[in-house]
Write a protein that binds this DNA or RNA. Structure first.
Lengths: 140, 140
DNA sequence: ATTCTATATTAGAATTATTCTAAGATAGAG
DNA sequence: CTCTATCTTAGAATAATTCTAATATAGAAT
């Protein structure tokens, strides 16, 4: 097995990313990279860790999520002011965001295409393209 | 003059939107809808109002920006966690966001096209399509 | 014009998400 | 085994925003 790296051992993952494999990073990596695509909030991951008996502070969860994002293991998705999600799916794709439930869902890359990108202003590069489709309940 | 409604009298604007034209709403509307496209933050608009000698509280600025957004006079743009901009350009368009300077800039509608939109999940409609191109300084 | 009532506005407290701080712990090189 | 750079920590601090309950005001009804 290998494919999209379905379980590349948390230890190796950290090693390859140049992050010291500490107890809490290992534990959080295991929770995050379980092979499924996850959209996590810091507070929520902290809860999961505690529930698993892992002693880790919320500050460390924030630090770790940001470090993972820096080395490209995660992608941060901003949907509302004061609400950051971290996406374990780092492939090229976009998101549905349901304003009623607060749920974030992946849109597969092949279902949304950007036809034309504008040139960035001089001296800048486009670092990231975020597309969010805000959903609302259909009522009649 | 009329075109895109370049100065449709703040009073009428509020009236047509079903908002009671109070002193502070009128003043804020005048600051916001001056004919140019603006990207405003609440704190900043509050500062401008005070500088103009308009007595208004920050809470009212927040209330007003949200009310204007609800009736379609403004559009809220989220770029980073804990950072909301209100855009006076409510036509269909997208944004560049420079992470270094915090500057938000319009991308004209004709410079970015979405080729294909996915179907929303059952029972939902796509309420808004947000595209943000994150910019970073080009260095070498 | 005056009165009245629903809606606005206010200051300040409260909340939420996040970052900072400075002290103590630990991975792993030597 | 020791040492040091890097982590982790609890709790304080910050930032943006929302809430609260009291006061003010627009505009309809008198």
């Amino acid at each position: 097995m290998a494919a999209t790296r379905p379980y590349a051992n948390a230890y190796d993952l950290l090693r390859e990313s140049g992050l010291r494999p500490t107890r809490q990073r290992l534990a959080l990596a295991k929770l995050l990279f379980d092979g499924t695509d996850r959209h996590v909030r810091a507070e929520q991951l902290h809860g999961e860790a505690l529930a698993d008996g892992i002693r880790v502070s919320l500050a460390t969860v924030y630090n770790t999520l940001h470090q993972f994002t820096e080395v490209g293991l995660l992608r941060e998705v901003i949907v509302e002011s004061g609400r950051a999600y971290f996406d374990t799916n780092i492939s090229d794709h976009h998101h549905f965001f349901c304003e009623n439930s607060g749920e974030l869902r992946d849109i597969p890359a092949d279902q949304l295409a950007i036809a034309r990108l504008p040139d960035p202003p001089a001296g800048k590069t486009v670092k990231r393209v975020d597309v969010i489709l805000h959903l609302a309940d259909l009522e009649d």
